[in-house]
């Protein structure tokens, strides 16, 4: 695919979505929690462009506010996973030996579970709520970053510039922070972009199962869950939040793909 065009298109969509999330109170036509039972399950009206749900709440406003939840869960999950993965991966890769062996066995144990399964079990332990969703997603999320960082550091640590830094007396912390990490920015950025997409889908899955965001907070996943029982009479309840998730994840995948191609082209 013409990577540059798609990369920019993806980045533009993601930027627009972030802007929508930030400006939600200004651009949403109605308060997302305001109920109007006399106007329930409308498919379209001049006042409610995307219709209303079973409690007469405006779907457009809830979808706009849903962007806040999805994106903030996504960014928080990626930031926390990245921080944990970076610390553990650096330690394992740089120190090697039994530290590496122990930490990587821990990664193996966590990866023995298909992604969402552990998150579902963990949210069942913690109970629903935004913070709990982020924690549950981080529980497995950090492993990917740790593996990546460890692998890159093992490949880099025998390079001459690292030997030179060590010979000049730099301590391990300085070698990792000043010499190894700057070389990891590109692969981590790519992984974080795909991680953001995965976290948004995972949050949607948890909320869809009723284990994520608590009602009445609008989240795309919980809106889909609410709409499921009205599939026959009001398919619009599931259409718009689903479309929002798909567009967001699609745009993030475009950015991730584009960055990957550029990064590979540069390292060739």
């Amino acid at each position: 695919m013409a990577s540059k065009t798609w990369l920019y298109a993806g980045a533009a969509i993601v930027s627009l979505l972030i802007l929508i999330a930030l400006l939600a109170p200004a651009i949403a036509p109605h308060p997302p929690l305001r109920q109007n039972l006399a106007n329930d399950l409308i498919a379209y009206s001049a006042d409610h462009w995307l219709g209303t749900d079973k409690l007469g709440r405006d779907i457009l406003s809830r979808t706009i506010y849903g962007a806040r939840i999805s994106l903030s869960v996504g960014f928080a999950t990626v930031a926390l996973s990245l921080a944990i993965g970076l610390a553990i991966g650096s330690l394992a890769g740089y120190l090697g030996g039994w530290v590496d062996l122990l930490l990587m066995r821990l990664v193996d144990i966590l990866l023995a579970f298909p992604g969402i399964l552990l998150a579902i079990a963990f949210t069942a332990v913690l109970g629903p709520g935004l913070d709990h969703v982020v924690l549950a997603l981080c529980l497995i999320g950090w492993t990917g970053y740790a593996r990546l960082v460890r692998g890159e550091i093992i490949a880099l640590r025998e390079r001459e510039f690292i030997h030179a830094a060590r010979a000049l007396g730099a301590n391990p912390k300085r070698v990792i922070a000043r010499h190894l990490l700057p070389n990891l920015i590109a692969p981590l950025l790519i992984q974080a972009t795909f991680g953001l997409a995965a976290a948004i889908i995972a949050e949607g899955s948890l909320s869809f199962l009723g284990l994520g965001v608590e009602p009445p907070t609008p989240s795309w996943g919980s809106m889909l869950n609410d709409g499921r029982q009205f599939l026959l009479v009001a398919p619009h309840l599931t259409t718009y939040p689903g479309l929002a998730i798909m567009i967001t994840v699609f745009a993030l995948n475009l950015v991730g793909d584009g960055l990957q191609e550029r990064f590979q082209a540069r390292s060739r």
Binding site: M1, F208, G221, L224, N225, P235, T238, M246
Partner: peptide, 29 residues
């Protein structure tokens, strides 16, 4: 080729919990 790549990107972006109800609306209902 571009079409196939676009399909694969779209396929990766469609969450099961939305695709399922969509297919249900179209093919079952």
């Amino acid at each position: 080729d571009r079409g196939a790549l676009l399909f694969s990107l779209l396929g990766l972006s469609l969450p099961n919990f939305w695709l399922g109800p969509l297919l249900m609306i179209l093919f079952s209902i």
